[in-house]
Simulated assay, not measured.
Amino acid sequence: MKSVKTYSWFQAEVTQTVIKMFKSADQSAYFVGGCIRNSLMGVPVTDLDISTPMRPEAVMKLAKSAGFKAIPTGIEHGTITVIAGGEPFEITTFRRDVATDGRRAVVAFSDSLEEDACRRDFTMNALYVDLDGVVLDPLGGMADLRARKVRFIGVPQDRIREDYLRILRFFRFHATYGDADAGLDADALAGCAENLDGLSGLSKERVGSEIIKLLSARDPSASIGGMEMTGVLQAILPGASGRSFYPYVSQEFHIDPMARLAALGGEDAGPLLKLSRKQSVRLAKFKDAMGHGRSVYEIAFVEGADMALCIAALRAAVFEQPLQTDVREQILTASKQVFPVRAQDLMPEYTGAELGEALKTLQHAWLASGFALTKAKLMQILETKST
């Protein structure tokens, strides 16, 4: 069986102290989920989650006796956060579902790793590593992980009805970990299509978080296509479509989830996805600039190269036109331009509001000229106006 014993996160001193905590008490525990999946796929590991048959109260007592801070972050669901060496470890008792309503589950504690595995969402998330670094694969997730196949555990409809957010997680996981060339799992797609009504009961914050993560993946085009085909996209973003999205992603200069969201179109996503104020403002700028307005070179000077590059690609996608071959270089050049007139150059003739208005007039003329007007030419504009 494969081992992760040589992986840096497993060898880390802080991880070994937590392992020693369980071993010294002759207790079993298993690293589970994302840290195993990401390790085996060569993706950075960010969180270390642990499952154990120990009950949460016993975990808290063990952690405190080892000198660690133990926080009952979700003790009613069996989760304790143990702080060791400044690092958090979420330690959760094995569980099995007793009842679910599509948003939250009533769970019972279990002594079985297999029962714990069966309540998870995808097979690639049901991989465990014991305290010696040996990978345990109770549900055949290793084969799916090697094939980069995102597959629900058991019957997709059953897993989805336990938590309807799993519909969006399926598409997000495919965009992040799946094999785009192999396509999306047919059974999973059918399960998603059959349970669209469940999406309406989810909180907008949870939906928004999943969509932003999906749109942050390297290429979410296949997932967006699957969402369109099953009706999921329309269910969460009425009026959205992939018509401009696919060409935009194919020619974008860098990943910006708000620009990708603008390319999807549809109704105002701000309230639908509970976007932050910063996200909403950025999305509005993209949508406002997609079909008209200032040149991308003016935008580059005022808003920065990143936004201008996104808008150039958005406009090309919307109007179904190719990008200019040198647009990137021109935008980068425009973003580095320096307005040649300073406030001091206009004083004392201009002060207060008049000074601000004069600078605004000159900058508008300078931008309209494509940065060509010199300081002398700009000053002549004011002289002409004053005579």
Results as ranks from 00 to 15, higher is better:
16 Q>C: 04
220 P>F: 05
243 R>K: 14
362 L>W: 07
226 G>V: 02
245 F>P: 05
197 D>E: 10
271 P>E: 00
195 N>G: 10
35 C>V: 08
325 T>G: 13
234 Q>K: 10
177 Y>E: 03
246 Y>N: 09
325 T>W: 15
16 Q>L: 05
195 N>W: 08
282 R>D: 04
356 G>V: 05
43 V>N: 04
171 F>G: 01
290 M>P: 06
203 S>L: 05
265 G>T: 03
194 E>D: 12
86 G>R: 05
384 T>Y: 14
123 T>R: 06
365 A>P: 14
124 M>A: 02
199 L>S: 03
189 L>W: 00
88 P>A: 07
22 F>C: 08
64 K>F: 05
55 R>I: 12
153 I>V: 13
384 T>K: 15
209 S>E: 14
62 L>G: 06
8 S>C: 07
102 G>M: 12
206 R>P: 06
265 G>E: 00
313 A>V: 09
142 M>I: 14
27 Q>T: 14
62 L>R: 09
190 A>E: 06
100 T>S: 13
156 P>Q: 05
206 R>I: 06
384 T>V: 15
1 M>V: 14
322 P>S: 11
187 D>G: 08
156 P>V: 03
8 S>N: 11
48 L>I: 08
298 E>V: 07
91 I>F: 04
34 G>E: 09
229 M>L: 10
34 G>R: 12
91 I>G: 03
347 M>P: 00
296 V>W: 02
78 G>D: 08
110 S>Y: 10
304 G>L: 13
95 R>P: 06
82 V>A: 03
147 A>C: 05
320 E>Y: 15
133 G>R: 02
188 A>T: 01
208 G>K: 02
370 G>W: 06
315 R>I: 09
145 L>P: 08
